[in-house]
């Protein structure tokens, strides 16, 4: 303000060259002064001290309100959220480690079970094989005996048939010989014919 007034006075003094300035001149000089002030900077509203009280009052109100909002609501809440998240992450990592250990355990158990199963399976296969072999042997033996019995029976039947056949041949031969002799005109002596046929058949 000091510069403004100073400038105003010098200006009006320069234009009029007299101390008795009219109201119009004073206004003009003042306008010039204000114009100069706006250019040079003393017109800065920042330096208008009359508004300082107002600004400072509202600033203090604002800061107190912000402080209350932050310290009562915002900061504890955000801190809690961040802590909770940290906790969740830590828990999740622990849980993941746990699950991983469990998975490793499960894999080992699975492998063990698999190996056991293989051993058992091979045992079962061996046992089954032995059983089957025994059954097979038994069946073969049974079959062999049956076959032997059957062949003995057959042989017997063949021998019987052969014996019957020989007897029949003898009778047929006797009869044929007798008929031959009869057809040649001689009387066949039964005894002689039989003897001859018997001798022939032996020979």
């Amino acid at each position: 303000m000091a510069t403004e007034t100073h400038e105003a006075t010098t200006h009006s003094a320069a234009t009029d060259g007299a101390a008795a300035a009219t109201t119009h001149d004073a206004g003009h000089a003042a306008a010039d002064a204000a114009h100069g002030a706006a250019d040079a900077g003393p017109g800065m509203p920042q330096l208008d001290f009359s508004t300082f009280g107002n600004q400072i009052f509202w600033l203090l109100v604002t800061l107190v309100v912000i402080y209350i909002i932050l310290s009562r609501f915002a900061l504890p809440r955000i801190a809690a959220v961040l802590a909770e998240r940290q906790g969740t992450i830590t828990n999740d990592i622990a849980a993941a480690e746990d699950l991983k250990a469990k998975a490793v355990e499960a894999e080992a158990a699975y492998n063990q079970a698999l190996a056991d199963a293989r051993v058992e399976a091979s045992n079962i296969v061996a046992a089954a094989k032995a059983d089957i072999q025994a059954e097979l042997d038994q069946a073969i033996a049974k079959a062999d005996t049956e076959i032997a019995a059957k062949s003995a029976e057959g042989e017997k039947a063949i021998a019987e048939i052969r014996a019957t056949a020989t007897a029949a041949v003898k009778t047929v031969s006797k009869d044929v010989a007798k008929e031959l002799i009869t057809s040649m005109g001689a009387t066949a002596d039964a005894k002689t014919v039989t003897a001859a046929v018997t001798a022939r058949m032996k020979g």
Binding site: N54, W58, L59, T62, V65, I66, I69, F73, A74, I78
Partner: peptide, 19 residues
């Protein structure tokens, strides 16, 4: 004043973001 208004808006902005 306009100081009051814009400081109030500042408070509201902070409230909106953090609360």
């Amino acid at each position: 004043t306009n100081v009051t208004l814009w400081m109030g808006i500042t408070i509201l902005g902070i409230f909106a973001l953090l609360v």
